[in-house]
Computed example of a mutant assay.
Amino acid sequence: MRMHPVFLLSATDAAHFPAESKTHDAPEIAFLGRSNVGKSSLINSLLGSKEARVSSTPGRTRAINFFALYETPGGRKKATPFLIFADLPGYGYAKISKSISAEWPKFIEPYLAERETLALCVCLVDTNIPPQESDHQLITYLKQQQRPFVVVGTKADRLSKNVLAKNLAALKHAHGLDEILPISSKTEAGIKTLWQAIAATIS
Rank of each mutant, 00 (worst) to 15 (best):
M1N: 13
M1G: 13
R2A: 15
M3K: 12
F7W: 10
L9E: 12
T12S: 14
T12R: 15
T23H: 11
A26W: 02
L32Y: 07
S35N: 04
V37E: 03
S40C: 04
S45K: 00
L46M: 09
G48E: 09
G48N: 08
G48C: 07
S49I: 04
K50H: 11
E51A: 12
V54K: 09
T61K: 07
F66L: 06
F67Y: 14
E71A: 07
G74R: 11
K77E: 14
P81H: 02
P81M: 02
I84C: 03
F85V: 01
A94F: 06
K95W: 09
S97M: 04
E103T: 12
P110N: 03
L112V: 06
L112F: 10
E116Y: 13
L120D: 05
C121I: 09
I129C: 14
P130T: 08
E133Y: 15
D135G: 12
Q146D: 14
F149D: 12
F149C: 11
V152R: 02
G153C: 13
T154M: 13
T154Y: 06
K161Q: 13
N162I: 05
V163T: 14
H173D: 04
G176C: 05
D178S: 04
I180G: 01
L181F: 02
P182Y: 00
S184N: 05
S185H: 02
A189G: 09
A189K: 08
W195R: 06
I198D: 04
